[in-house]
C-alpha cells in the first residue's frame, strides 16, 4: 500500500479536514488523553531553511503526544552540505524515524522525499508552493474563533500575488458553502489569474477585489493579513505610496464587526500595529497555538493510517 503523507492540502477530503479539526478540538479539551499516543515514535524535522513557528510547532506537537524528535534546522549542519540528494537524506532518516516533517526552499522536495520512503512525509513548506499545515491551522483557527467555517466573508489583505498561504486558504475555504472573498491589495499584488479562474470562477464563488481596506472592513468576518514586501514593487515610490494603507491599526479596526477576527500567518513586520495585539479580535497568536493542536491531530492520523 502506498504510504500516505501530506504534501498538498488538496489531498485531504473536506470530511478528513473536518475530522482533523474535531480531533484537534478534543486535544485542546483533553490533552491528557493524548499525552502518550505516540510513545516510542519519532518525528524527524528536516528543515532546510529557517523557521521558528513551524518547526517548533511540529516538535511541540510530537512531544505533547509523548513521542520524540530528531532532525536538523539548518541544511549546513547535515549531509546536505556535502551534496546529498533529498531522496537519499529521506531514505536515511526513514531508517530512524516514523514520520518526517520537511521544509525545503525548492518546490516539490517533500514530494520527492515521500516518493522515496515508506513512512509519511508532511510538507512543512516548499518554497512558495505549498504549506498545507498552515492552511489547516488557518481553518482550525476560524473554526475555533467563530464556531464554523462556512457562510463567512473572508477578507485577504496585502500581498495576494506571492502569498502562498492566501492561495491555499482560498482553495481550501472554497470547499465550504456560502463563503465569499474580499481581496484587498494594490494592483501590483492582486490575487493571481489562475486562482480566480481555476478556483473561484470554476466553482462560481463570489468575490470582489479592492484596493481599500477601509471600505470593506465593516463587512468582514475574517481579515487575513499578509505582509506587503518592498521587494515585490517595481519602484520605491509605489511601495511608499501603498505601504501604509495596508497596515492594520486600532483606528482602521474601529468599523469592524465585534466578532470579526484578524489572522496572520506570521512573522509580521509592520503590517499589524502592536497596539492591535490586545484587541480581542486579534487572533494571530491564538492561531500559532492552534497550529500545534492541528499538527498533533495530523501526526496521529498519518501514523495510525500507515501503522
Amino acid at each position: 500500500m502506498k504510504t500516505r503523507g501530506l504534501i498538498d492540502i488538496a489531498e485531504l477530503t473536506t470530511q478528513e479536514i473536518d475530522e482533523l479539526m474535531l480531533v484537534a478540538s478534543d486535544i485542546v479539551e483533553n490533552p491528557e488523553r493524548y499525552a502518550e499516543k505516540c510513545k516510542g515514535k519519532k518525528l524527524a524535522t528536516l528543515f532546510y531553511e529557517a523557521s521558528t513557528r513551524t518547526r517548533l510547532s511540529f516538535e511541540s506537537a510530537m512531544l505533547d503526544l509523548g513521542g520524540n524528535v530528531i532532525g536538523f534546522s539548518d541544511a549546513q549542519s547535515s549531509s546536505v552540505s556535502k551534496g546529498e540528494s533529498v531522496s537519499d537524506t529521506a531514505r536515511t532518516v526513514a531508517c530512524f524515524a516514523d514520520i518526517i516533517a520537511m521544509r525545503h526552499p525548492k518546490e516539490g522536495a517533500p514530494l520527492v522525499a515521500q516518493m522515496s520512503v515508506n513512512i509519511p512525509v508532511i510538507n512543512a513548506g516548499d518554497g512558495g508552493h505549498n504549506h498545507p499545515t498552515q492552511t489547516l491551522t488557518d481553518l482550525f483557527t476560524i473554526k475555533r474563533e467563530l464556531g464554523h467555517v462556512d457562510h463567512l466573508v473572508i477578507g485577504c489583505c496585502g500581498d495576494l500575488k506571492f502569498g502562498r498561504t492566501v492561495h491555499s486558504l482560498v482553495t481550501a475555504m472554497s470547499r465550504y458553502p456560502g463563503v465569499r472573498f474580499v481581496f484587498i491589495s494594490p494592483d501590483e499584488l492582486r490575487i493571481p489569474e489562475h486562482i480566480r479562474a481555476e478556483v473561484l470562477d470554476a466553482k462560481g464563488i463570489s468575490y470582489v477585489e479592492t484596493t481599500s481596506l477601509d471600505d470593506v472592513m465593516p463587512e468582514l468576518d475574517i481579515l487575513y493579513m499578509t505582509r506587503v514586501q518592498r521587494e515585490r514593487f517595481f519602484n520605491e515610490a509605489d511601495y511608499l505610496r501603498l505601504r501604509d494603507s495596508y497596515i492594520l491599526t486600532q483606528e482602521k479596526l474601529k468599523p469592524a464587526k465585534e466578532d470579526m477576527r484578524v489572522l496572520h500567518p506570521l512573522p509580521r513586520v509592520n503590517e499589524i500595529s502592536i497596539a492591535v495585539d490586545s484587541d480581542p479580535r486579534a487572533a494571530y497568536f491564538r492561531q500559532v497555538k492552534n497550529g500545534k493542536f492541528i499538527r498533533m491531530a495530523l501526526i496521529l492520523k498519518l501514523l495510525s493510517e500507515n501503522a
Binding site: 525545503h104 526552499p105 518546490e107 520527492v112 518554497g127
Partner: peptide, 13 residues
C-alpha cells in the same frame, strides 16, 4: 523551466 523546482538542482530526478 521553474528555477525554484526541485528538478532544477537534483539532476537525476
Amino acid at each position: 523551466k521553474n528555477p525554484r523546482c526541485i528538478t532544477s538542482c537534483e539532476q537525476e530526478l
